[in-house]
C-alpha cells in the first residue's frame, strides 16, 4: 500500500490524472453525444461538446431498422456461453499443466500455445470450409465452439496455468493426504482459490466474444442471427453511406452496458486479483 500524500502532491496527481483521462474519455463522449445530434452537426467544426438540440430519434430507428433486441440477445447469450465454456476448459487445462506431472506435458503445452500465435485472418478460410461441410454456416456454432476450444481460449489457459503455478501447494497436499482425489482437490480447493484469475479470464473472454467482428461477418448471413458488432455495419443509407447518428446510437447501446458491469464488478475484480497475485 502506498503512503499518505501531502495536499500539494495530491493536487498535482489529480491534475495529471485529469489531463491523462481526456484522450480516453473524449471519443466515447463524442460517440454518445453525437448519437443525439442531427448528421450535419456530427462532423461540424469545431466539434460540439453537447448537442444543441438533443434528440433520441436515432435510438428508435436502431430498433426499426434491425432486429436489434434479438441481436442483443444473440451477442449476450453467445458471450455468456463462451465465457462459461472457456472458464471450464481453461481452468482444467491450466490446472493440469501447472500441477499434474504427465508424460509429454511440455510438448503438449507448446502445441496448445500455438493457438495464441495465430491471427484469426490466417485460419478463417479453413475454418469456414470446415463449418460449411458440417452445415453449420449461418448458425452460432462457429462463434461458440471456436472461442471455447480454439485459439481464443489458449490465452485463458495460459493465464490459469500461470495463476496455479503461483498458488501455494500446501493446501492441496493436505487435501490429498486426507484422501481427496485429483478432481475433488481441483474442485474443492484449487478452484475456489482461483476466483480472481477466473474473474480476469471471464472479463477477457466476454469482451473478446462481445467485440468479435470478422467471424460473425463471415459466418452469419441472416439479420436475426447477427451479433452486435456486425449489426453496427448494417445501418446505412440508400447509397451505402453510413447513417452516422443511428450507427453511433447503436454503438453507444453496445458499449454502455458492458461499462456498467465493469463499474460494478471492478472493485472485486482488481482487489481479488491483488490478494492472491497473478504470479508468472
Amino acid at each position: 500500500m502506498s503512503r499518505d500524500l501531502s495536499p500539494r502532491t495530491k493536487l498535482v496527481l489529480y491534475g495529471v490524472l485529469l489531463v491523462l483521462s481526456v484522450p480516453f474519455v473524449f471519443p466515447t463522449w463524442w460517440m454518445v453525444t453525437s448519437s443525439l445530434k442531427p448528421v450535419s452537426e456530427i462532423f461540424s467544426f469545431p466539434p460540439q461538446l453537447l448537442p444543441l438540440n438533443p434528440r433520441f430519434g436515432a435510438y428508435q430507428r436502431v430498433f426499426d431498422l434491425q432486429p436489434f433486441g434479438q441481436q442483443y440477445v444473440n451477442s449476450l447469450y453467445i458471450a455468456l456461453l463462451v465465457t462459461v465454456g472457456t472458464l471450464a476448459v481453461s481452468a482444467l487445462a491450466g490446472y493440469a499443466f501447472a500441477r499434474i506431472r504427465f508424460r509429454g506435458q511440455n510438448v503438449l503445452f507448446l502445441v496448445v500455445l500455438a493457438g495464441l500465435l495465430i491471427p484469426s485472418e490466417v485460419t478463417i478460410v479453413p475454418l469456414f470450409q470446415m463449418f460449411f461441410k458440417l452445415g453449420l454456416i449461418d448458425t452460432h456454432w462457429p462463434l461458440i465452439l471456436v472461442p471455447i476450444l480454439g485459439a481464443p481460449s489458449v490465452l485463458a489457459t495460459f493465464i490459469m496455468r500461470q495463476f496455479f503455478l503461483g498458488l501455494p501447494g500446501e493446501l492441496e497436499e493436505a487435501a490429498r493426504v486426507d484422501g481427496l482425489g485429483r478432481f475433488a482437490t481441483f474442485w474443492k480447493i484449487a478452484l475456489p482459490l482461483s476466483r480472481p484469475a477466473l474473474g480476469a479470464v471471464a472479463i477477457f473472454t466476454f469482451l473478446h466474444s462481445w467485440n468479435l467482428y470478422l467471424e460473425p461477418i463471415v459466418f452469419l448471413s441472416s439479420p436475426e442471427k447477427f451479433t452486435l458488432p456486425q449489426a453496427l455495419t448494417q445501418f446505412v443509407d440508400a447509397y451505402g453511406g453510413p447513417m452516422w447518428d443511428v450507427q453511433l446510437a447503436a454503438a453507444s447501446m453496445t458499449a454502455l452496458p458492458v461499462l456498467v458491469v465493469f463499474v460494478i464488478a471492478q472493485k472485486q475484480f482488481v482487489e481479488g486479483l491483488a490478494h492472491t497475485g497473478l504470479k508468472g
Partner: peptide, 22 residues
C-alpha cells in the same frame, strides 16, 4: 433471400464464401 454484406468488407466476405464452397 437477399444477404446484405457490409459495404467495406463486401468483396472479402464474398470471396471467403466462394473459397469456402458457399
Amino acid at each position: 433471400t437477399f444477404d446484405p454484406l457490409p459495404f467495406e468488407n463486401y468483396t472479402t466476405t464474398l470471396t471467403t464464401q466462394i473459397a469456402g464452397g458457399n
